[in-house]
Structures are given as structure tokens and as C-alpha cells.
Design a protein around this nucleic acid. Sequence first.
RNA 1: GGUCCUGUGGAGCAGUUGGAGUGCUCGCCGCCCUGUCAAGGCGGAGGUCGCGGGUUCAAGUCCCGUCAGGACCGCCA
Length: 601
Amino acid sequence: MIRTHDAGTLRATHAGTTVTLAGWVARRRDHGGVIFVDLRDASGVVQVVFREEMATAHALRNEFCVQVTGEVGRRPEGNENPELATGEIEVTATELVVLSEAAPLPMPVDDQIDASDELRLKYRYLDLRRSGPGRAMRLRSRANQIARTILHERDFLEIETPTLTRSTPEGARDFLVPVRLQPGSWYALPQSPQLFKQLLMVAGMERYYQIARCYRDEDFRADRQPEFTQLDIEMSFVTQDDVIELGEAIVGALWKELADHEITTPIPRITWHDAMARYGSDKPDLRYGVELVELTDYLRGTEFRVFAGAIDAGGYVGAVVMPGGASQTRKELDGWQDWAKARGARGLAYVVLDAESGEARGPVAKNLSEAHLGGLADAVGAKPGDAIFFAASTDRREAQELLGAARVEIAKRAGLVDENVWAFCWVVDAPMFEPTEEGGWTAVHHPFTSPNAEWMERFEDAPDEALAYAYDIVCNGNEIGGGSLRIHRADVQRRVFDLLGITAEEASDKFGFLLEAFKYGPPPHAGIAFGWDRTCMLLAGADSIREVIAFPKTRGGFDPLTGAPTPITAQQRTEAGVDAKPKPAGPTAGTSGVAAPVEPS
RNA sequence: GGUCCUGUGGAGCAGUUGGAGUGCUCGCCGCCCUGUCAAGGCGGAGGUCGCGGGUUCAAGUCCCGUCAGGACCGCCA
């Protein structure tokens, strides 16, 4: 080692010790006759003092990489710095070696100053020298370790699965990789290891996990990157409760150690339907109340056409209350209309209750009968001074989701979110299917998700009502993990495919290898996958998953550091077989649509 | 694909109803300085105002287009 101690570990007990340190110049304070340098390494910062005889230190600049030898001493009386862990002492240098110099910095390596995202990503190696970003990396490493410890204690095997594979049917667009040895054929990068982990269950591994990189070619967000990580888990011979118990053990350990928060177990469970009815979301933020109230029956018979139209068509009318919302200006109330329109709704009807008289006012109030207005406050649980927002639609879920989004916005604007609270829940009993635009059905989770016991033998009777053994774990309104019991009976799988309109040929073409495996005694199995970036983001208190990824990409999928993606050369293009000519006919492939097979070129 | 915000020396920001010279803080370079910890003092260098077009006597400022970054919707478990 070219150093004897880590800078951040030095304490008063080291006084009198001669140490050699190595690290970076975090800051220098040059007084002419004496120079102070804050020396930073991964462990922290310590003040190094250069006296007159160490004149070479004048040439030091920020972020020079240096090796310093000197004696640890207590700082002179009154010069201690209680802000620093090493603030009681300093190192008086007797030797200085500049290991490497630093050019003028394109961005400050300083915890105080914030640079733009693009610049931070371009110089991510400088960004990560800062304590906040560096801490996020260390936290994530620790999170991995905690999860691995729990899983190994429980006899899980860490098994890697391919990243060059064929499409698995998660539903997102695949990233594709041309195959030089078979021009015209392509690998897909996995959207998740879903099918492989099920094969590992057939293989008798019984307990599998992997911190797995996944790839989805969709539009990106603050919490979505083209490549992301799942803590992926699958177990044989278990029930839903077993998976949930494991999930709670992992989450409990993570939050205990990394967020200093003891999660009360069992984590409350709410059914998907209750979550939609009460919170208008399948990932409800339970840090605050502001629950939805259904008014379909209460308002039955109303002459207000917006509501009557929805009710008569068998739809839904509901409301959500904004505490104190009556004090909003006309401009603010109009702002809600723009807010609603921005997410595709026609608008957001509202009534405000006068703070003194409790009288209902606002454009919608004129359209409601005396009787409806009279009991409204009680029906929705509103007080004088509150505002009531309404949504009505023939599509129950659509109206609930609008109110659910309004609920989140209300909490934000009314300051109801307590940032110090961690509110977890499991959302269980999710629906198996949802209707497609073409009048068919599609799997909400994925087509291998098992119907629950109640629906196992009759999900075809009412596909819109059938429930699955599927569960999501939600933290403060973020889905951090989800999973399901899988179908292991061939007959049930066949019936699900039938309902989804997947023929035997198509099924065999898309994932025949899994169906083939399921012929040979597949065990009952279930699993869960945690969105690891999102989980670490929450633990780090960050508001973007970019903060917990070492080298993230921008919204456009661009990496400002490497400049990826780049065009390829003509030679690469030819060798990769990107332009191989399609054959007129042949066996199909891919996850959907007709494949374009090729002639060898 | 849609809506919105941002783009001004290396960094972070200001720039009024369009009007004389684009200003501040940090950093950078030089000099001074023995107890600072966001050290201080003096001096200096550094800018196609993202890019293209238009309106105007005159555009950093107004309009159109475009590029880049960000937030959201659609999409995506």
C-alpha cells in the first residue's frame, strides 16, 4: 500500500503517529507562510498543514492526486473543527508527492454546488467524488450485500441467466442484437429473467435469486432507464404468504440498516379493488388520507348530464376532498382544469364549501339539486372551507385513476405529505386480465400468472372479474416490487392462452421451450422481483434512479460520458448482418407478428 | 407521439416595457499573506447570449423552426 492510514479514520488517539496518506486535494487555503489542504479519500477528509519548508505545496490545485507523509497532531487550542469527524487533529506534512495533476475542472467537485444533469453525467467520475453521489453508490453496494445475506441464509442460490436471449413476453419493446454467425437472426436483451427463473424451478434449484440487469426499449423517465436492475427471486413449493414473508424480511432489513427505520410487520395488505376504490391507484401512497368516495348511488337521479350520463351507462361518479381547498383563488381552481386536461380528462368538476356558512358554490353546484347539495358534505366527509373534486366516467377505472391522480396532487399542494414517514403496503388480488382495444383480453401481469383458488376453475366465466395470485409491494406511492404465483398445470396454462387468443402454434412459437419444460414435472412455484434502482433510490432519499446508477443515461437514452450510442462502420454493418435480405417465407419467430426470415448472405 | 420548463465566459445564476458597455458569485492565471476550514486582499484573462430564420431603425429580450437537458401524459410492471 502506498498509504498507511485512511484519511477519514484519523482521530485524537493517533496524535504523535507518523502517517502516510493518499488522496485528492479537496480544498486548499494558502496563507503564504502556512498552507492548509483538505485531503480527501474514500473514507473522508483530514486537514493537512504545510509549513514554510514545504513550499512545493503552493503549486497544489483542487483535485490533484497526492501522497502526503506527516505527523498527526492535535490542533492548537481553539482551532478544532467540530464539523469534521477528523476535526480535532491535523497532519503536519513532511513529505509531499504529487501522484498526478488535475486540469482545471469542468465542474466543481463540491458538495455545495449543483451542476446540470448533463454535465454531471459527462464527468460522472468527478461527480462521484462528491460526498452525496459517492454515498449513493456505497449505499447501493450495502443494499446488495444485505439482500444477498438474507437470501443465502435462506438457502437461495445466486444464478446468472443469459443476456443474449430471445424475447420473453413482458410486453415492452425489445433491444435487439444482430447475430454475425446467422445473418438476419437477432438476439433480444431480456426484459427480465422471468422465463429462465421458471426453468430453474423446473430444474430443481428450488430457490433462485439474481441481481439481474434488464432491458426495455421504451420512453424513459426519472424512475426509468433503458437498462435497469431487478433483485429477481423465484421459489418452489411455496404459497403467496411465503413470498410475501420473504419480501418483508428483505425490505425490513434494508430499511432497518439503511434508513434507520423499523418496519412494522406484517406489512398491511390491501386488495387491488380496495386500492382503486379508496385511492384511485394500484400503488397508493398511504402517507396521507384523502380517500376517494364513490357517489354513484348518492347522485343517482341527478339531472346534471355529466354525472347522469356516467351513472345511467353503468359507470362511476366519485369525489375527493381537498382540505382547505375553498380558499383557492379562481385562477388556482381553473388551474385544476388544465391539470386534468393535461392527463387526458375533459376536466375536473368541483364544488367549494364556504368557510363560514358551509354553502356549496361553484359552477357544478348550480347543476345539483338542493337535496344532493344538502347531504354532499356528509356524503364525502367534507367540512366548510374544503373543496370537493368530482370525476365521472362510464369507465370506472378511468374515473378512479383521475381522482387518484388528483389525490396525489392535492396532498402535494396542501402540504399533506410527511417526508419523514415510510408507508408500506402489499397490493394483492390483482385482476388477471384487462380488455384490449380489439375486444379481446390481455394479461395484466404476464400470461404465466396463476388465477387464485376462487377463480382457478372458472376464470373464463368473467375474465374482467377474475383475480390472480399477484402481489405488489408499495412504498410511499412507489411500486418497489411485484410478483405472482405461476401456473404449473398444463391445463390451466392452456385455458389462459385460449382466453388470451394465443393458439397452440403461437404459444409454441413464442415460448415453446417453457411449455416443453413444463411437461416434465414442474413444481408449484412463485416469485417476486424488486425494482432495485427504485428501491435504492428511496433508501438514498433521491428523486431519480439516476442517482443510484453509476453511469446512467439521459432521457434520450444517450450516455454523455461515452457518447453511446454511436453509428457503426460500413464494415461492422456488413459483418453484423443487419441488412440481410428477408426470405419470402419460413418458420416464424419473435414474440408477435410475422417474422422476417432471411437467406444467408 | 403530445404538453410544459430550461439553455447567457469553465460552473451556478441575474439581465426590467426591445434601446448606450451583458452583470454577479465561484473557478482559472499572476502577485501578497503564518491558523484557515466556502480563508482573505490586489490585479488579470475568458462570452458565436444553444443553433437557424423572421419582425424591427434596433433582439439575450418578441415570433417561427430546430437541437440539447429536465418534468409530466401516452407508452412501459
